[in-house]
Design a protein around this nucleic acid. Structure first.
Lengths: 156, 156
DNA sequence: GCCGGTATACTCGGATATATTATGTCCGAGTATATGTGG
DNA sequence: CCACATATACTCGGACATAATATATCCGAGTATACCGGC
């Protein structure tokens, strides 16, 4: 089981955009250069965030992405679902059905699947409790400062 | 992000073995037939459980697998780790390092990675709290009964 | 009838293929800026 | 000098390749049972 890199990239990009706090968009190229990741693939991940209405995209010259939500309204769960999709990691394929269980058994949910779903619910709850605003506070102030300086250099 | 099917299969196999509660091993072929899954691949998954000392395997004719732990000592987390490996789903690649952050920043753990790890810890905690014995109680008694009847038919 | 030896069928275990997913690349559509031209 | 038309550079967005992983298969090593011959 492995989460795609897009989640990490997406979260860091959201944090960067939040710190800059400007409505002027930043291009994929600048962000990719900043983080040292392949530009076109980063673009693909950011597109997923746009579809989820987490980012807003602007086409054309001087285009790019900016945050579409307030940091305290944006949770980690939102980003994870946007990039990785809404499906649960564990998917019950109901192999118990092959055992020839009775109709009465079939009506009840599979106990194993239930336990797995419960665990994932705990995971989602934890992710939902973390907003981007929380991280902005936790992270060292120097990081925010550095990000803003970088932006001033590359904005043009 | 997607968990392999082996986890579901492994859990159902453990449950079946626990219900039968016999020390006589059951072959992959019988279990695979029972669940309607490819036998050789199921075998591969069960091997992973053997390596984790969750199952015990017996080679040769009349060989197969049996449970190596008491059901109340076997957690869902054990099975998941055995099949999927011990690595976390989210892996921080420290892309922030590329931003040119100071030595002081580098010493602190990445706040984003921290939040993700915290969420996974909640997930693991939930999985650790679920033992096989718990599931044996939750599941309908009819299922246990049916499993034992099936075993009496195929044991020879 | 009983014992020992041999052949046989069965099973695990790991090495090897295929399918699916994630990662990475490329090119077209669209937009703001820069440039040039006429009034 | 100003307004407008045109050319140009830049950016997103999705279609298209490649790499990594999960799924599925195959074959060899080993073991218990069945069979067979001798006593």
């Amino acid at each position: 089981m492995r989460m795609g890199e897009g989640v990490e990239w997406g979260l860091h990009c959201c944090l960067t955009l939040a710190w800059i706090g400007d409505q002027e968009p930043i291009s994929t190229a600048k962000l990719a250069e900043h983080f040292g990741v392949p530009p076109t693939y980063l673009n693909k991940c950011l597109q997923a965030l746009v579809r989820a209405e987490i980012l807003r995209s602007v086409s054309g010259a001087r285009g790019g992405f900016c945050l579409a939500k307030r940091p305290d309204e944006l949770t980690f769960l939102d980003v994870v679902i946007a990039v990785e999709g809404p499906d649960a990691a564990f998917r019950c394929t109901e192999i118990r059905q092959n055992e020839g269980c009775s109709r009465d058994e079939k009506r009840r949910p599979c106990a194993i699947a239930g336990a797995m779903q419960e665990a994932e619910e705990a995971w989602r709850t934890a992710l939902k409790a973390q907003t981007l605003a929380d991280i902005m506070q936790k992270a060292p102030a120097a990081a925010a400062e550095r990000t803003r300086r970088w932006y001033q250099e590359v904005r043009r």
